[in-house]
């Protein structure tokens, strides 16, 4: 039985809920861990961290770095595979300002503006939110050559300042928008789009695709 206390509790963390939008577009950090004594990358989960903070993901995509970089550098493309990013409009200018609208649970959205903080052609793109955004966030994607003809290793890392912390993540989990899962899925969709020109779906009809359902739910 859903009681009023639960509902009011949900209400009381609504402020924290604003942060959830940020969860939508990638992997996140609330506490950077110090890395281990081995060669595993920083974003690999360490067993001695109960609640790992920095989650990032790497995929290998059988395409040249230049092609992947070019697609990503056009931020307006990102909603194609970042499921919870509704749209990104680029203001242009030297700082590469872009306005993001991100879906948050319960039909709300989170708005933020980012600027490109580092841009190395065919190799790295980094961005950060500017003041006045609903949440604070930074992100980076790097493109490095994979061995032989295996293509390019693409690593995505997004960090955010999470008011609410564990509570925020808890709610995210309840709404199936757990950031780590989201990051993994988003990167896999990017890989699909780049390698096959489309994003795999087992939907039987157009109305059953995740995109269609999302639009339906607002």
């Amino acid at each position: 039985m859903k009681n009023n206390r639960e509902i009011s509790m949900a209400g009381s963390v609504a402020a924290a809920g604003v942060a959830l939008g940020a969860l939508a577009f990638g992997a996140f950090l609330s506490r950077r861990h110090d890395g281990g004594s081995d060669d595993a990358p920083k974003n690999a989960r360490r067993k001695n961290h109960g609640e790992h903070a920095l989650v990032g993901r790497t995929v290998t995509i059988r395409k040249p770095a230049a092609e992947l970089y070019a697609y990503w550098r056009d931020f307006g493309n990102l909603p194609e595979f970042m499921e919870n990013v509704e749209r990104i409009t680029e203001e242009g200018g030297t700082k590469g300002r872009a306005n993001w609208t991100i879906k948050a649970p319960a039909g709300t959205t989170v708005d933020l503006t980012t600027e490109v903080t580092d841009d190395v052609e065919n190799n790295r793109i980094a961005w950060a939110s500017v003041e006045g955004s609903d949440i604070e966030t930074t992100g980076e994607v790097t493109f490095t050559e994979a061995p032989g003809d295996r293509g390019t290793r693409v690593s995505l890392r997004i960090e955010y300042d999470a008011p609410g912390g564990a509570i925020g993540r808890g709610i995210a989990k309840a709404f199936l928008r757990e950031p780590e899962v989201q990051a993994r899925h988003d990167l896999k969709r990017f890989k699909m789009l780049m390698e096959t020109g489309e994003i795999a779906t087992s939907a039987h009809r157009k109305s059953e695709t995740r995109k269609a359902k999302q639009q339906e739910n607002g």
Binding site: H185, K188, R189, K191, E195, A200, S202
Partner: peptide
């Protein structure tokens, strides 16, 4: 690697 939808992997 690409035929199983991301959310089902």
């Amino acid at each position: 690697e690409n035929s199983n939808p991301a959310e089902k992997q």
